[in-house]
Design a protein around this nucleic acid. Sequence first.
DNA 1: TCTGGGGTCCTAGGACCC
DNA 2: TCTGGGGTCCTAGGACCC
Length: 387
Amino acid sequence: MLPLPRSIAHLDMDAFFASVELLSAPDLRGQPVVVGGRRALAPSHGEPHPRLRSYVGRGVITTATYEARALGVHSGMGLMKAARLAPDAWLLPANFDAYREYSRRFKAAVQALVPVMEDRGIDEIYLDLSSQNPEGRLDVARSRALALQQSVRDATGLSCSLGIAPNKLLAKLCSDLDKPAGITVLGRADLESRIWPLPARRINGIGPKAAARLDGLGIHQIGALARAPLGLLQQHFGERYGLWLHRAAHGEDERPVVTESERKSFSRETTFERDLHPRLAKPELSRQFTRLCEQVAEDLRRRGYVGATIGIKLRFEDFQTVTRDHTLLLPTADPALIRRTAGECARRIPLDKRIRLLGVRVGKLSAPPEAPSPAPESARQARLFDD
DNA sequence: TCTGGGGTCCTAGGACCC
DNA sequence: TCTGGGGTCCTAGGACCC
């Protein structure tokens, strides 16, 4: 017996961070606005908000309104570069607490209508509508999408876009086709007409590197990828990824909507305002290092985790990135033990360039022991690893 | 004066075990 | 002494995503 066709939705909030900001700054509606940077800037005299042109630093755009995107700026772009393209755009600092709160609200509203929900980050989710649309009817899918948009709007005042298709890969592609506030429903028969003309890069899982290599093979669109011989793809991208590319281009994706998943790691990192010399700025580096370890330890404690693998990340002035890690015999959330272990990792990296970024990571997570005996636990471990 | 911060997954070699 | 294979864990790097 054939498996029933699925009805999968991808819901993506429209310009999420910027849209949340506009709720409290309605005077900026319809204007180019970007969110990014660490601190709030002071507005120039007589202006209600700071302009992008007054930004100095190394931040990037986290979200741009559609009006700002029309000026050529987009998320991930450095703010200094964006300021050259759109000096008059308004710049607001990111306010993650607010975004998390609106994220909870929209997800709760959606889950009240569709219980099978997969969290894909702060502003997007997948939904399995199959049980609500067992015949896979396109009109039923559309009416579900309208109801979801309405309930998200009622709960948050924000708009979102939806794609509904037989699987996650296609649903994700579709949610992007009619932004903002769009609904795109795709049936099996629409693959060649709607999906194949799109650039291969639009497939979730084809990034800048793979897209560039595909371009080098003369493969620009998804249709061309679909027509490429499987052997050629596997020859250039490996057996596994080559097969995945082939299947993706043919719209094949069996991944289920996953409602629960266990976190794998915690990390904290910081990019310095100026690259730091490993010896001359050692005190500053050491202070920041300790602070990152304390932050990640506090994150672990707050969420009730301990971790055994302690790792560090360094990015040098030339953007070369190196990592080192070490796995302890017993997991920990002790900031002092994390700091000491991370310090040992750091000693294994030759430091001959200025340092741009420093990060600390804790992985191989588990729940802390049932009956905690905090002080002795960390003290015993500390001795174990001191020599 | 390009290029944040928080994640996941994959690959690949070596150690170690059966 | 050489030959064989499979499985897991650790570590480092890299691609990719939001």
